[in-house]
Design a protein around this nucleic acid. Sequence first.
DNA 1: GCCGCTCCAAATGGATCCATTTCGAGGCCG
DNA 2: CGGCCTCGAAATGGATCCATTTGGAGCGGC
Lengths: 216, 216
Amino acid sequence: MSEGAGVASQRIADQLRERILTGQLAPGTRIIQDELAEELRTSRLPVREALRIVASQGLITLRANQGAWVTRMDMRECDLTYRMRERLEPMLLTESAPHLTDDDIDELSELQDRIERGTEVEEFLVLDRRLHWTVYRHHNAEELASICARLWDTTQHYRRAFTRLTGSQRGWIIGAEHRLLIQALRDRDHVSAEQVLELHIRRTRVELSRHPEVFG
Amino acid sequence: MSEGAGVASQRIADQLRERILTGQLAPGTRIIQDELAEELRTSRLPVREALRIVASQGLITLRANQGAWVTRMDMRECDLTYRMRERLEPMLLTESAPHLTDDDIDELSELQDRIERGTEVEEFLVLDRRLHWTVYRHHNAEELASICARLWDTTQHYRRAFTRLTGSQRGWIIGAEHRLLIQALRDRDHVSAEQVLELHIRRTRVELSRHPEVFG
DNA sequence: GCCGCTCCAAATGGATCCATTTCGAGGCCG
DNA sequence: CGGCCTCGAAATGGATCCATTTGGAGCGGC
């Protein structure tokens, strides 16, 4: 795949990705090669390659002779993306779970503690992601993992909007799901862990589908 | 995503993809920018972009400051790819099946007739692919479809080797599975169609896992 | 007053040139 | 004789310049 090529291109791609995931660049925003190049003190060439890298991760959309925009999703696409996650992330869990150490699982508990103590949306998004990917930490399936990461990233903006909207109402549900997941992992009951994870993603999808206003 | 950008880049990417899928370029083959550029009467720049496009589809692997190789898989990766297909292609079927016309289904039957009459490996690969993607013809899920296509493409070389190896021994199994799939679609029994499709992919995966020599 | 045509500025696409990195061949030293 | 080091060719990465395309502003005609 495309982890290689161009140190500069990769750096620029990472920065672009960061800005999109943190919400600095909203879906629909146009990205102009010259602007990015000047701002990052480089030529347009590595910028062009960076745009391609980020496009291959689904975060921006390119159109020939026209330019690049931060990818925009409608509710239908977002729903489908969550359905894919429901089928793929449990696979990723299965690949990783047998290799989780007791320390890993303690780390999961601590992350959930912090999630429950916190109130900031941005903090929640970071911790939630870190929790999930700690579960997947020992996967040995790059392809699968990169697809899952892509599905996660492309819905990040709408997850943020959704979280802001529903506030802490859903906190205890997510908490219960996370705790059940962590306990199943601690018990080495991987089938249940898979099932809880699928449930967790599906429940979020269903709730999201009840908030069309997230998609403006 | 990355359907746009650079008419030339896109053309070159298509040619590269074609050569890999038809087996002209085997996994592990190194691709040198200068050679491709000279052969296609263009400069290295669109070649570089084409390499990125094809890399984003998983068919070649880039390493910074080193170059590009046709992606090589081991049995474990191939097995995982088939497992992903088992979970995703039935989804794609579900998106498309309700919109299949009687003509579409007749076309499927004719394709299967031709598969059963033929003996050439290359012909089989083409017809088999056409059959599957005729089933998916009316999907309205670009992301899902592009992931499925990617999973299909990256295993193409090993499917070819496998087909050459097992010859026509598996022909009647594939025929039965395809016929059952087509009949379920004709009966508008989409749940059964999904199930047959999953079975079909899983059976192929299991057989493939019994032939490690394919990954020599 | 509205629609359409022309032309121009701005942005993307491609070619060429130069810099940098990698890897192997060949020689030198131990 | 073998291992290491150096050097150079070859390939990739980046910068600059030019070509092409696009879309909108402004003018003209109906």
